[in-house]
């Protein structure tokens, strides 16, 4: 805005208008979008990995079953934060190492030199010359994969338990009526699984939302980073000097997360009701059924 060019002369409402529309503030606002993008991109991938893990654990084929078991128990047995730190680094280095082998076959020096990980410039991912935003997207992508792998394993556990919770006689009856194993799974097993999976999945969604500040750990400049940076006291050398306002910035963050979780909670309540409406033994329904 034109008037914001000279912030020193501003007061009152126009000072606030200019202060809240600085570039750094826009980055702060965008970081909320990043959180939403992360969780909404993550959720479908988590479900895919969850089903893959759960179904492979149920597989009759031993190697597949073993892979499923290793995946779920490894993630379960290792602190989340370790995984969040490990996966992006490991993936980044794996990708660059492969690119190094392909793009610079003439370089004979080892990739690991002492404590350093060295690849040729052409193997860098993304290339050093690319724009900053490409680096940011790539970093975000690695973070997304880390989230998906960790939460996919939790989802696999939930789904595995839910599949096992469907009463055996429901499946046996389907077989007794000539359904193939595939039909039993798609027509009976899967639809009945949701009511057992939903409480766990909604819990997982909440944990996923609350884990998003970990993006900070992975070098993504997220809302927590900006709240700290913008809230810190600014001396007169800044355009908009102010005292320590972190309490307000973190309050905004608090409200954002509370809103997000409460909306989610309401959604899952509605979904649970929808899924269990039919086959939850409701005492009112039952008694009216008996007298009818």
């Amino acid at each position: 805005m034109q008037m914001c060019v000279d912030p020193d002369g501003l007061a009152g409402l126009s000072w606030w208008l200019c202060y809240l529309t600085t570039n750094t503030h826009y980055s702060f606002y965008l970081s909320f979008g990043t959180i939403l993008i992360l969780i909404f991109l993550c959720a479908p991938v988590v479900m895919v990995l969850g089903f893959a893990g759960a179904l492979s654990r149920r597989s009759r084929f031993l190697p597949l079953r073993t892979v499923g078991l290793i995946y779920t128990s490894m993630v379960r047995g290792v602190p989340d934060i370790v995984f969040f730190m490990f996966v992006p680094i490991a993936m980044d280095q794996a990708i660059e190492a492969i690119r190094h082998k392909v793009k610079c076959p003439e370089v004979t020096a080892p990739i690991f030199q002492g404590n350093d990980f060295v690849v040729c410039t052409a193997a860098k991912m993304p290339l050093s010359a690319t724009d900053q935003w490409v680096h940011e997207i790539y970093g975000f992508f690695l973070a997304l994969v880390a989230f998906a792998i960790v939460f996919g394993a939790f989802a696999a556990n939930t789904l595995h338990g839910a599949l096992a919770a469907v009463p055996k006689n429901q499946l046996e009856t389907a077989r007794a009526y000539g359904m193939s194993e595939k039909q039993v799974f798609w027509r009976i097993h899967l639809p009945q699984m949701w009511r057992y999976a939903l409480p766990g999945l909604s819990n997982l969604w909440m944990i996923l939302i609350k884990a998003t500040p970990l993006l900070f750990l992975l070098g993504v400049e997220d809302a927590v980073y900006w709240a700290g940076a913008l809230g810190a006291s600014k001396t007169q050398i800044y355009d908009f000097p102010h005292g320590d306002w972190r309490i307000w910035y973190f309050s905004a963050l608090l409200i954002f997360y509370l809103l997000l979780t409460s909306v989610s909670e309401r959604f899952f309540k509605w979904l649970t009701l929808k899924v269990t409406r039919e086959h939850n033994l409701n005492t009112d329904d039952l008694s009216s059924g008996v007298t009818a």
């Binding site: 429901q170 009856t173 389907a174 009526y177 000539g178 027509r187 009976i188 009945q192 086959h279």
Partner: peptide
């Protein structure tokens, strides 16, 4: 050879009519 079970074993997620037509439609 259709089976009738002690515990009825109607499919809990389907309505009564859906229970009745499920196997004729999907299997037959």
């Amino acid at each position: 050879l259709s089976m009738v079970f002690q515990q009825f074993n109607l499919w809990a997620h389907l309505t009564i009519l859906e229970n009745v037509i499920e196997a004729p439609v999907t299997v037959l």
